[in-house]
Design a binder for these strands. Structure first.
Lengths: 186, 186
DNA sequence: ACCTGAACACCGTTCAAGT
DNA sequence: ACCTGAACACCGTTCAAGT
C-alpha cells in the first residue's frame, strides 16, 4: 500500500538485474512490490508505458562531458551510455523498444547532436552523428546482453566475440566521420 | 498436410505483411498454414528458431554491389538492406532478435566488412564499418516500422520525422569515416 | 514423416468493488 | 488515492497418440 511510481521502477530494475527481461512480467513485478497484478495499472497505463519510464530511468545517469574537446566528448558520452546499459542486464532491449514506441523521450540523441554541432557540423550532419552513435550503442548492447543472457541460462556457449573491441572500432569510424564532416563544413 | 519449412516461413512473412509481429503467434501461424499449433514444433524447435529462419529469409535478397567503387558499394548495400527491411512490416525487429540470439547467420556484416577491406581498411576498422552500418540500418528501421505500426493502429499520430533523411545523414557520416580510415591506412 | 487432442503453466488487461 | 477479486481472452510448449 502506498507505493509510488519510483518504487515500481526500482523493483523492475531489480528484476532485470537479478533475472531477465523475460521474467519482467506485470504479474511478477506486482508480486515483487507486494501487490495484486492489476494494481500496477493504477500507476501505468500499460506495460509498454511502464517500460518506457524504466528506459528513461536507466539512461538518466549518463553524465555530461562538457569539459572535453568535442570529438572526445562524443566518444566519452557513447562509452558512458554503453556503460549505463551494460550495468543492467537486458536494459538495451528495454531502451530500444521504448525509443521505437516513442513513449520515452530521447534526450541522449539531442545531446549527441548538440556536441556535434559545437564542432561546426551542419544540423543534418550533426543529427547523422547522433543517430549513428545511438543506434550503434543500443544495437551492439542488445547483442551482447542477449548473448550473455543465453550463456547465463546455459543454452549456449561463449561467443568468442569481443564486443568492446567491436564497439570501439565502430565508434572510431563514426567519430572520424564526424571530424571529416567538420572539416568539410569549415 | 505435407507442409514444408518454406511454406511456414512464407505464411509467417504474410502475417507480418498483412498484420504485425504482435499477431505473428505460433497459434495464428498454424491456423494460417491449416494445421494444429503444435504441428509447427515438428518443423522448428521453438518460436525463436522459426523467427531466426525468417530473418535469414528476409535478408537473403540483398544483392551484391561488386560493380561499384567501394565507398559507393557500402552505401548502396546499406540502402538495399534498408529497402529489404522496409518491404516487410516489423521485419527489422525480427532480424534484430535473430542476430541477438545468434541463431541467424550474419552474412551481411561480413559482406560489409569485405567491401571495406577492399578499400584498404585494416581488419578492425573494416569490422567497425560493418558494425556501424548494420546497427544503424536495423536500429533506425525498427524505430520507423514500430512507429508505422502504431500509426496503422491509430494509437498515435504522424511523427513528423524523416527517417530517410536521418538514415542518409548517418550513412554519410559512416562512409566518410570509412574513407578517412582508408586514407590513414594508406 | 507429419500431424492431432488435450493439457500445463503461464500472460496482459479490464471491470466492478472496496477502503 | 490506491488496491483487491474475479474473470476474459489469450500465449508457447509438451506429451502421448494417431496415420
Amino acid at each position: 500500500m502506498g507505493n509510488t511510481r519510483a518504487d515500481i521502477l526500482h523493483a523492475a530494475r531489480g528484476i532485470l538485474a537479478q533475472h531477465s527481461l523475460a521474467e519482467l512480467t506485470m504479474r511478477r513485478l506486482a508480486a515483487e512490490v507486494g501487490v495484486a497484478p492489476n494494481a500496477l495499472y493504477w500507476h501505468f497505463a500499460d506495460k509498454q508505458t511502464m517500460l518506457a519510464a524504466l528506459a528513461d530511468d536507466l539512461l538518466a545517469e549518463v553524465p555530461a562531458r562538457d569539459d572535453l574537446p568535442w570529438t572526445s566528448a562524443l566518444a566519452a558520452m557513447a562509452q558512458d551510455m554503453r556503460a549505463a546499459l551494460l550495468a543492467v542486464p537486458d536494459s538495451a532491449e528495454v531502451v530500444s523498444s521504448a525509443w521505437a514506441s516513442g513513449l520515452a523521450g530521447n534526450d541522449l540523441a539531442s545531446r549527441f547532436a548538440g556536441i556535434a554541432a559545437s564542432g561546426g557540423l551542419l544540423p543534418s550532419a550533426a543529427g547523422g552523428v547522433a543517430t549513428a552513435l545511438c543506434q550503434l550503442t543500443i544495437g551492439l548492447s542488445i547483442e551482447e546482453q542477449t548473448r550473455a543472457q543465453m550463456e547465463r541460462l546455459g543454452v549456449i556457449g561463449r561467443s568468442g566475440r569481443d564486443y568492446t573491441a567491436e564497439f570501439t572500432a565502430a565508434l572510431d569510424v563514426i567519430v572520424d566521420g564526424a571530424r571529416a564532416a567538420s572539416e568539410a563544413a569549415r
